[in-house]
Nucleic acid binder design. Structure first.
Lengths: 342, 342
DNA sequence: GATATATCTGACATCGATGTCAAGCATAAA
DNA sequence: TTTATGCTTGACATCGATGTCAGATATATC
């Protein structure tokens, strides 16, 4: 099937290819009658400009890059869904790339890939958004970047974020309000800056309520189910155990839930469990997880928006902050009597 | 940053651009010394050809399309991971697209998108792989297609599949071997051809074992957690309930698991539950789900392989069949005594 | 030694769009 | 009427690669 080109449309409409190009791109300086006539032919023929030719000649690009270190996580799926929906609506295409730092030369590979294919912009979710080498690379290649939930500021890039600290604090406060005074915390992957923020929020709430921060109540984790399970088992193995556990994400909270079931501890009667993210799996657990709903989908959509609507009068590297929602389900409940008596 | 082009390399190596092109593409008719010299410059400069220019001039493409109807499913994540890994290794890029049939004009939109961007090939997982309009479209646009787990044969496309029927049968036989004689079945989304295959396998095993197929034991589902939960509640609500339930995928099996917990039915002591797919969540449940491990990741990788290694002497539209693995975990166990006594 | 063949190499056109620029034609200002 | 200005249009070069083809060597054949 022979592709339809600008020339075909031009011939049909009786104008030059350049004029058709003007109409396609909504440029000024085309007589209204001519514009309408050309548009009509374009519609009739169903002409679509060849994206590659366009990119080659104009340096624009209709390809956005979405970068992941782990494309299998529940988080990645959410982000991708949001980005994809917005891309479709705007006529952009989404190229998914995976980047890991485990191999030597990963940065060179990444650069090679970028050089072979000019991107109209890149979306960097955590933890990639905090890899300085990667940010430098994109800056050097002059590719616009939007970071999702970045750890710190970067002059060169835009960001979409959420108040992780505030959300964690609020969730902790909800647990305290339920009567919990001894709360365990499972840390997230330290590579993700958000992990530290969530811990800060947790600790701020504890301190504000005058509760002690016992070091043996805080265990490391890496956002995986497995790490949550391990930490949960350690926290629940001895007689002296917390009445609530706050895991820094839902997958780990699920691990704690499983650890509790294995140990025969009833949730939420004897133990409350809270997660973070409101991943799809939070609703698939029994009992369903109390968590913080993060607007992942909306954040990704906003990222696409920022990349495709450059400037429009605003500053070049805006920073958007989207709201979270506390979502209390059945995995949390009042602290058991023995606890409040203490 | 000014991009590095063929001309730059040519100048540096003291040959014409065309000769560099020959070396890059491994064409014949280049003197070994010249080839080595050019290659050296290419390596030193870290030159990477511009994919867009290449595609424009040669009709080849380094972009593969991965199409989903629901990019948020656990299945989609697996497939994407497999495809991505292989693409990286082969220097291809993966463009993810979402297609739904809910809007009028979806096919036209899809065609427009395809025309704006020539793809080197497309991967169609279920249920898209069984939409005739879509297959016709790709045939018309002359884009190579690999279908994953297709429902029926199609002369024009290659396929990667698994013996769904045999796997479902084998899993059912395992349940029967555990003493279960009254087994409930939750159907999958009828849009997915695999759903019917799995049901066939289940029924074949039952019939072969001389067990009755009671119609009230088979309930509809659509592969979602919610549908599994609803079906599970219906199956477990009355006194006369099956001793085992086989859900056509893991998400629905998880729904059954939750229904059982709500009803206070112990798994696997009073009820065995089995799923299908071996999604990540199967291991995150308690008890972990017995299921069929589908090589989703490998299937996707194989699909990429088929698209990027065209022909090589084999027939144009091969059909690969990959092996499954029965994975019995703790959600299944011997049938309760009352059951075997009957 | 002459011719045929095979092996190399580069000039040039091409893919399908956009950027640049100059020309044509109005209309407004002098 | 002349000049300046602004709108409208298309010719042509260009983006960075590859396809085609003809010319230049080197080797094989007669």
């Amino acid at each position: 099937m022979k592709p339809l080109t600008l020339k075909d449309v031009a011939r049909q409409a009786g104008v030059s290819p350049k004029t058709v190009s003007r109409v396609i791109n909504g440029e000024a300086y085309v007589r209204p009658e001519v514009r309408a006539a050309v548009q009509k032919v374009v519609d009739e023929l169903g002409y679509r400009p060849n994206a590659f030719a366009r990119e080659l000649s104009s340096a624009r690009s209709f390809l956005l890059g979405l970068y992941f270190d782990d494309p299998a996580s529940a988080y990645a799926a959410d982000v991708q869904r949001g980005a994809l929906a917005r891309c479709r609506a705007l006529g952009y295409h989404l190229v998914v790339e995976q980047v890991t730092r485990d191999r030597l030369g990963w940065l060179e590979e990444c650069e090679a890939s970028l050089r072979s294919m000019r991107l109209g912009g890149a979306i960097l979710p955590p933890p990639l958004c905090d890899w300085p080498e990667l940010l430098d690379l994109f800056a050097r290649m002059e590719v616009a970047v939007v970071r999702i939930s970045p750890g710190d500021a970067d002059e060169r890039t835009a960001a979409v974020e959420m108040d992780e600290r505030g959300a964690a604090r609020e969730l902790t406060e909800a647990l305290i309000a339920l009567g919990h005074r001894d709360i365990g915390f499972i840390q997230g992957n330290p590579e993700h800056h958000a992990a530290a923020r969530r811990q800060e929020g947790f600790e701020a709430a504890m301190v504000a309520a005058g509760l002690p921060l016992r070091s043996e109540r805080t265990l490391p984790g890496d956002f995986t189910f497995r790490s949550g399970l391990a930490a949960g088992e350690r926290l629940l193995s001895r007689e002296d155990r917390p009445s609530a556990i706050f895991a820094a994400n839902d997958e780990m909270a699920l691990g704690v839930l499983v650890a509790a079931m294995r140990a025969g501890i009833a949730v939420p009667d004897q133990l409350s469990i809270a997660g973070f993210d409101d991943a799809a799996i939070a609703r698939m657990a029994w009992p369903p997880l109390s968590t913080v709903h993060q607007p992942h989908v909306e954040m990704a959509a906003a990222a696409v928006e920022l990349l495709t609507r450059p400037a429009e009068g605003r500053k070049a590297t805006p920073s958007l902050r989207l709201p979270y929602t506390l979502t209390l389900r059945d995995s949390t409940g009042p602290a058991p009597a023995s606890e409040t008596e203490r």
